[in-house]
Nucleic acid binder design. Structure first.
Length: 770
DNA sequence: GAGCACTGC
C-alpha cells in the first residue's frame, strides 16, 4: 500500500515557484497578500484581555519557556536512540525549507491568544506534518494533539513521517512513542502519544464516547476542503464545543484549541462559521471580516486567527479544445500522441477519465496505435488506475518509468486526491467524473457522469506541476470552462443523511434542523432521514435517540445494517452470528465473488461456486461462503483459488467480522462463549431473511404480472443485477429484498434474496407502527 | 448482462 504520498515528502522543491492553482482559485477576489515577511510581525493587534483564561497556562508557560523558543529544540525523550536523533537532525534541514516553517511563531502566538485558527496552506506547504509539531511544546498543550485525515493511508504515513522528524519511535514500536495513529482495525497509540493522526470516522466515534474531548488539548482538522460528511459533522460538533467552553458551560479544565486546515479554503466562510458559534455573527459586518482577512497572512479577529501559507507548485500551461468534442476518448488519444511526438522525455502523461470502461477502451486504442509507431520512437506504456483494480496492478504506477518510454496513466478521480502519481508533466482532463447523487424523494442513489467543478479541474491541472513546469489539456472549450460550477458540491448536500443524523442524535443533538452545518442540507433531506430513523426504530416518537439507535450508532456499519444486527440478536430471531457473517460480506469494500472476464473462466467459476450458491439468494450464498472460508484452516488462499473467491475480499470480511463480533459483545448482544463457536450447523434462513427485512424495508420489490419487479415503496421498476445468483431465474420469486440499489443505464437491485410476501407485510407493519 | 471515490470504538 503506497497510495497517498504525504504532500510534505516532496519538500525539497526549488525556489522560483509560482502557485498557479492558488492564483486561479483566488483571482477575481482581489486578495492582497503581503510578500513573505518575517512571520509573526504580521500579527495584528489583538484584544487579549477578552479571552484570557490562562492562569494555569501561565504556569506551564514558565516551565516550558526554554522549549518553545526554538521549534527544533524538541525534548529528547526516553526513546531518543542515537540513530533516531541523527535522522531527526537530518530532516530538520528539509523542514526548515518548507513554506510553513517561517510561520511557526505566528501560529503559536495566535493560538495562545485565540482558541480557533483557520489555516490555508496549498499543497506542499508542509502544514500536515509541521503544525502539530509547532504546538507540542506550547504551554496550553498538556494533553494530546489530534489531527484528522480523510483517509487511513494518509493518517498512517503522516504519523510515520512526523515520528521520524521528532526523533521518536512510532505507533506500536514502543509504549514510549510520542507519535501514534488510529484508523479502523489499527490503533497504534500509547500512553505517551503526544501527536495522534486519526481518520475522521475515528474521531467521530471518540466524540460519541467523550463529547468534551478531554484527552485532547488541540484538534487539528486537516483537508477540510474535501468536505466529507464526517468533516462537516466534526466542524459542527467542534463549534458547539468551543462556544460552550467559551461561555463557561463546559466541565473542561483546559481550553480546546481548534485548527482548521484547508488547501483551498473558503476562509471567510469558515471564520464566519466559528464566529457565529461565539454569538458574534450578527454584530460583525461581513465587510469587516473580509477586510481583516485580506490585509494579512496571519491575522486574527477577536476570537479566530487566520493564516495563509504559500504552497509549492510549478506553473502549468492550460490548453483548451477549439471546438467541443463528442468523443473525448478519441480526443485524448490524439493529444497523447501529439505530446509523445512533440515533447521530450522525461514526462509522463496523466489522463483523467470517468470510469473503468473508458479507461479500458482508451488503453486498447493506445496499444493499437502504438504498434504503428516508428521503431526508434520511445515506447508508450498505458497504465490503468481505478479503485477496483487489484493492489498489485495499482502499484505499477509507482515503478520507475523504463528507459526510453513514457507512462500514460489512465485514471479515474482516484488520482485527484487519493493517489499521487509521480513523474507527471502532462495532464489530459476530460472534464467529467462520475458522482454519487442521492435523491431523497425517491430514496435512491444514482451514479452519473457529470461535468466537474472549476476547483476540481484546477486540482487535476495541478497534478502536472508537482515536479516541474507542466501542461494541461482540457478536453472542452474555454467558454465551457466558464460555465462550470465554482466548487464541487459538498457531499452532505448530495448524500443520504441517515448516518449523519444518527450520529448527531447519539451525540445528544436533538434539534438537528438547527445544527451548525457549514452547508445546510435541504430540509426535505433532513426530514426524510429523520423519518427513516423513526422507521428503523432508532428514534423514539419524541425524536430523541432510542436504546436501539444508540447501539446502532456504535456499530461500524450503516444504520440499516446496524438495525439488522440488532434484530438478529433478538431471542425470537436468534441468528446474530450468521447475520454478522452476512453483514461482514456486505460491508466489505470489494466483492467476494470477483468478476471474471473470459467466457471459459466464467463457466469454470460457475461450476466452482456452485456449492456456495444458495437458492434463497445472494445473502445466504455469502453466508455459506464466509462459513466455509472460516472453517478452512489449512490453506485459505488455495481455498479461494479453488472457489473463484477473492482472497483479499475475504481477509477484509474476516476483519470486519471480528470487529463486529467484539462490538456486539461490548453491547451485550453476544457472550464470550458465543464467539468461540465457528459455525452454526444449519442456518435458519427464515429468521435471517426476516432480520434483513427489518433494515431493508425500503429495499423490497414485488413481482408484477409482466415479470418485472416494482418496489413496495415508490413503485419503481428495478431489474435484478446480472451479478446476482437470482439473475435469469426461470421461476421468479414473488418478492425480493436487496441490499444495494444501483442506477446506471437502468435501475438495478444488487445483492438480492427471495422472500415471501407476508414477511414483507410483517416488517412493514413493525416499521410503520410507531 | 455490469463496475466514481472515500470511511467507522
Amino acid at each position: 500500500m503506497s497510495k497517498t504520498k504525504p504532500e510534505e515528502s516532496n519538500a525539497a522543491a526549488t525556489s522560483q515557484i509560482t502557485n498557479n492553482a492558488a492564483f486561479e482559485a483566488k483571482k477575481g477576489k482581489k486578495r492582497k497578500r503581503k510578500a513573505d515577511t518575517a512571520a509573526g510581525a504580521e500579527l495584528a493587534p489583538s484584544s487579549p484581555e477578552k479571552r484570557q483564561k490562562s492562569q494555569q497556562s501561565h504556569r506551564n508557560q514558565q516551565r516550558k519557556s526554554n522549549q518553545e523558543a526554538r521549534p527544533q529544540a524538541l525534548p529528547s525523550n526516553g526513546n531518543g536512540a542515537p540513530h533516531l536523533l541523527r535522522r531527526r537532525d537530518e530532516l530538520l534541514k528539509t523542514r526548515k525549507a518548507l513554506p510553513i516553517w517561517p510561520h511557526a511563531d505566528s501560529i503559536r502566538e495566535a493560538l495562545r491568544k485565540n482558541n480557533v485558527m483557520v489555516l490555508t496552506g496549498e499543497t506542499g506547504s508542509g502544514k500536515s506534518t509541521q503544525v502539530p509539531q509547532f504546538l507540542t511544546s506550547e504551554p496550553w498543550c498538556t494533553e494530546t494533539i489530534a489531527i484528522t485525515q480523510p483517509r487511513r493511508v494518509a493518517a498512517i504515513s503522516l504519523a510515520r513521517r512526523v515520528a521520524e522528524e521528532m526523533g521518536s519511535l512510532f505507533g506500536k514500536q514502543s509504549p514510549a512513542a510520542k507519535v501514534g495513529y488510529s484508523v479502523r482495525f489499527d490503533n497504534a497509540c500509547g500512553p505517551e502519544t503526544k501527536v495522534k493522526f486519526l481518520t475522521e470516522g475515528m474521531l467521530l466515534q471518540e466524540i460519541l464516547r467523550d463529547p468534551e474531548m478531554n484527552q485532547y488539548s488541540a484538534v487539528v482538522v486537516d483537508e477540510v476542503h474535501e468536505r466529507s460528511v464526517n468533516v462537516d459533522l466534526i466542524l459542527g460538533f467542534l463549534r458547539n464545543l468551543v462556544s460552550e467552553i467559551e461561555k463557561g458551560g463546559s466541565k473542561r479544565k483546559q481550553p480546546l484549541k481548534v485548527v482548521i486546515m484547508s488547501a483551498t479554503a473558503d476562509v471567510e466562510g469558515l471564520v464566519k462559521f466559528f464566529d457565529e458559534g461565539f454569538g458574534n455573527g450578527a454584530e460583525r459586518s461581513k465587510k469587516e471580516t473580509q477586510d481583516e482577512i485580506e490585509d494579512h497572512t496571519t491575522k486574527q479577529n477577536d476570537l479566530i486567527s487566520t493564516c495563509f501559507v504559500e504552497g509549492r507548485q510549478y506553473p502549468v500551461k492550460t490548453h483548451y479544445l477549439p471546438e467541443p468534442t463528442m468523443d473525448w476518448v478519441e480526443s485524448a488519444l490524439k493529444i497523447i500522441f501529439k505530446i509523445h511526438y512533440k515533447e521530450p522525455l522525461p514526462g509522463d502523461i496523466l489522463v483523467f477519465l470517468t470510469g473503468q470502461d473508458k479507461i479500458e477502451s482508451l488503453e486498447k486504442l493506445i496499444n493499437d496505435y502504438a504498434e504503428g509507431m516508428e521503431k526508434e520512437m520511445p515506447k508508450l506504456l498505458p497504465l490503468p488506475l481505478f479503485a477496483a483494480l487489484p493492489q498489485y496492478a495499482q502499484q505499477r504506477i509507482f515503478e520507475p518509468t523504463p528507459r526510453h518510454a513514457r507512462k500514460v496513466i489512465l485514471a479515474t478521480n482516484i488520482a485527484e486526491t487519493s493517489v499521487t502519481v509521480p513523474g507527471v508533466r502532462f495532464v489530459i482532463d476530460c472534464g467529467k467524473s462520475k458522482i454519487k447523487q442521492f435523491r431523497s424523494k425517491l430514496g435512491l442513489e444514482s451514479l452519473l457522469a457529470k461535468p466537474v467543478s472549476k476547483s476540481a479541474s484546477i486540482q487535476r491541472k495541478g497534478r502536472a506541476g508537482r515536479e516541474a513546469p507542466g501542461q494541461c489539456y482540457r478536453l472542452y472549450t474555454e467558454p465551457d470552462y466558464a460555465t462550470l460550477e465554482e466548487r464541487t458540491k459538498p457531499e452532505i448536500l448530495r448524500c443520504d443523511l441517515v448516518q449523519a443524523i444518527l450520529t448527531m442524535k447519539a451525540r445528544g443533538v436533538n434539534d438537528v434542523l438547527n445544527f451548525p452545518f457549514l452547508d445546510r442540507p435541504p430540509i426535505e433531506a433532513l426530514k426524510e432521514a429523520l423519518f427513516q430513523l423513526l422507521r428503523l426504530g432508532a428514534l423514539k416518537a419524541d425524536g430523541t435517540v432510542s436504546d436501539i439507535g444508540l447501539k446502532m450508532s456504535k456499530l461500524p456499519v450503516t444504520p440499516k445494517l446496524g438495525r439488522i444486527i440488532l434484530e438478529a440478536g433478538r431471542p425470537e430471531r436468534d441468528c446474530l452470528l450468521d447475520v454478522i457473517d452476512i453483514i461482514s460480506a456486505l460491508s466489505s469494500d470489494d466483492s467476494i465473488f470477483f468478476n471474471i472476464v473470459t467466457e471459459e473462466k466464467k463457466e469454470q467459476a460457475e461450476e466452482a461456486r456452485r456449492n456456495l450458491y444458495r437458492r434463497e439468494g445472494d445473502h445466504m450464498s455469502f453466508l455459506t461462503t464466509v462459513q466455509q472460508y472460516a472453517e478452512e484452516h489449512s490453506d485459505r488462499r488455495a481455498w479461494c483459488d479453488r472457489h473463484f473467491v477473492s482472497h483479499r475480499a475475504m481477509q477484509n470480511v474476516m476483519n470486519i467480522r471480528k470487529q463486529l463480533r467484539q462490538q456486539c459483545q461490548t453491547l451485550k448482544l453476544l457472550t464470550p462463549s458465543d464467539l468461540t463457536a465457528d459455525v452454526t450447523s444449519s442456518p435458519n434462513s427464515d429468521a435471517i431473511l426476516a432480520s434483513l427485512l427489518r433494515g431493508f424495508i425500503s429495499n423490497t420489490a414485488r413481482l408484477c404480472p409482466d415479470g418485472s419487479y416494482k418496489t413496495f415503496l415508490g413503485n419503481h421498476t428495478v431489474a435484478i443485477h446480472p451479478s446476482s445468483v437470482l439473475h435469469g431465474r426461470k421461476v421468479k420469486a414473488e418478492a425480493i429484498v436487496f441490499s444495494e440499489f444501483l442506477y446506471t443505464n437502468k435501475a438495478y437491485a444488487k445483492k438480492v434474496s427471495a422472500v415471501q410476501m407476508n414477511w414483507i407485510e410483517d416488517a412493514m407493519e413493525e416499521a410503520f407502527d410507531i
